[in-house]
């Protein structure tokens, strides 16, 4: 256990030293929040009601999809994997450590937004904080699991970036965080339902806790975890 805990703490430090993680988990979400928060609340005053949720979804989607895959590629598509295997460290450790560390980073950043949004833009605290945090935690887990698939399946960082952006852009554009999804053409509304961000945002903005928007997230999570297991096995086999 002490090896695992040391690994978690070490990965946390490595992420702080890595510019990619700092930029994707903290710098870009904060800049986006500063600029778009001002624009949203000026153009659409009603957006104050859901500003915390929309900024959280943006942060989680960006941090997970853009931030995590390069860390996994660094471990599994390089000679780092050899060093782990040669020294008796199970390859799954890298996946666990990077996910746990990214999870904590994203949770912290979301909490920062939760605290400063009301002060900075008079954003409204979610009416049901419990629902918000359950949705947030679930969305982080789902987004990281999807990002893990990219990180384990793709062989280099150039391709992970391309794939991550291909998932990230529609996730933010179609999930309803930029503008209400009922303003979108029906085909885009349907397409939006392919992305976890849509379900996560819908759940976090619900007035009552219902399983309707949470179940799809769990389904994606289970499928993604199973796929990660298969991909990990493929990476392990020489």
């Amino acid at each position: 256990m002490s090896g695992f805990l040391y690994g978690v703490a070490l990965q946390w430090k490595l992420d702080l030293r890595s510019k990619t993680m700092l930029i994707t988990c903290y710098a870009v979400p904060l800049m986006f929040f500063a600029v778009m928060g001002g624009i949203f609340t000026s153009v659409m005053p009603d957006s104050r009601e859901t500003l915390i949720q929309s900024m959280s979804v943006f942060t989680v989607t960006l941090g997970a999809l853009i931030g995590l895959p390069p860390s996994l590629v660094e471990i599994y598509r390089s000679d780092v994997k050899n060093a782990y295997q040669a020294n008796g460290v199970p390859l799954s450790l890298g996946l666990f450590l990077t996910n746990i560390s990214a999870f904590v980073h994203l949770l912290i950043m979301s909490f920062i937004l939760y605290v400063i949004a009301p002060v900075a833009f008079d954003a409204k605290i979610p009416a049901h904080p419990g629902t918000y945090f359950v949705g947030l935690i679930t969305l982080i887990a789902v987004s990281l699991s999807v990002a893990s698939i990219i990180g384990l399946a793709v062989k280099n960082t150039a391709n992970t970036s391309m794939l991550s952006i291909l998932l990230f852009l529609p996730s933010t554009m179609l999930s309803g965080i930029m503008f209400p999804s009922n303003m979108l053409p029906k085909v885009f509304v349907i397409a939006g339902k392919l992305f976890p961000a849509t379900w996560g945002y819908a759940f976090m903005t619900e007035s009552n806790f219902t399983w309707h928007n949470l179940l799809p997230l769990f389904v994606v999570l289970i499928i993604a975890v199973l796929l990660c297991g298969l991909l990990l096995k493929r990476v392990e086999t020489r």
């Binding site: 090896g3 000679d79 780092v80 008796g88």
Partner: peptide, 27 residues
Amino acid sequence: GIQLQSASLPVHIKGIEAVHLFEKWNK
């Protein structure tokens, strides 16, 4: 004990951290 020709570590890890990670993992 295995030293591979093609082995690497995460770019930001410090020497002592690598030693401690493998030390703790192998108990």
